[in-house]
């Protein structure tokens, strides 16, 4: 569980991707950016194991248990499906797509991590046990990914502000 990037970096990258999508697709707004952000966070729901460790849940339920499938593509598909059921039907298909974009960005970022063994996690479980070679770009505890993502988010936020301010100025 330590071989996953910090949540803040994922959230910032989700914000950047979501906001860039609003530049491209006019029917998307800040509410939809929030969905990409939640999607980018969703594989890290696995961190619930810090509060309720696998062993504790297994002992409580009386069955073998591991939270780790939440951090696979299959787990993301199921979580995103559940999440989309929580939004209004008119927004559901869009919510599915945006949550999926966010979750995909999360898995791509985590495959870039430096791991002690040189192998990444079993992202395609249960379909495949295969683990991609780790890209060795950064450690989960490195600070620079959050700094870079924060700078990108700041630039995108400024561009977004100037885009929304421009029509108002023109209107005056």
């Amino acid at each position: 569980m330590t071989d996953v990037a910090d949540v803040l970096t994922h959230v910032l990258v989700g914000y950047v991707i979501g906001t860039l999508l609003t530049f491209r697709v006019e029917s998307l707004g800040q509410a939809h950016v929030a969905l990409v952000v939640i999607g980018a966070l969703s594989p890290d729901f696995v961190k619930i194991q810090l509060l309720f460790p696998d062993g504790f849940v297994a002992w409580t339920l009386g069955v073998p248990f591991s939270w780790s499938p939440l951090h696979t593509v299959a787990g993301s598909v199921l979580v995103i499906g559940l999440g989309s059921l929580l939004v209004a039907p008119a927004q559901r298909k869009r919510a599915l797509a945006l949550l999926a974009v966010g979750a995909l960005s999360h898995h791509v970022l985590d495959l870039l991590l430096l791991t002690p063994t040189g192998e990444s996690y079993a992202v395609f479980w249960p379909l495949l046990e295969y683990r991609f070679p780790s890209a060795d770009l950064y450690l989960s505890s490195d600070r620079w990914p959050a700094v870079v993502a924060g700078c990108c988010a700041l630039v995108v936020w400024l561009v977004d502000r100037s885009r929304t301010a421009a029509p108002e100025t023109a209107h005056e």
Partner: peptide, 14 residues
């Protein structure tokens, strides 16, 4: 999935 992983492979992120 959570039970299956617990019974077979354990922690997939480790």
């Amino acid at each position: 999935c959570l039970v299956w992983a617990g019974a077979t492979t354990g922690d997939l992120t480790e």
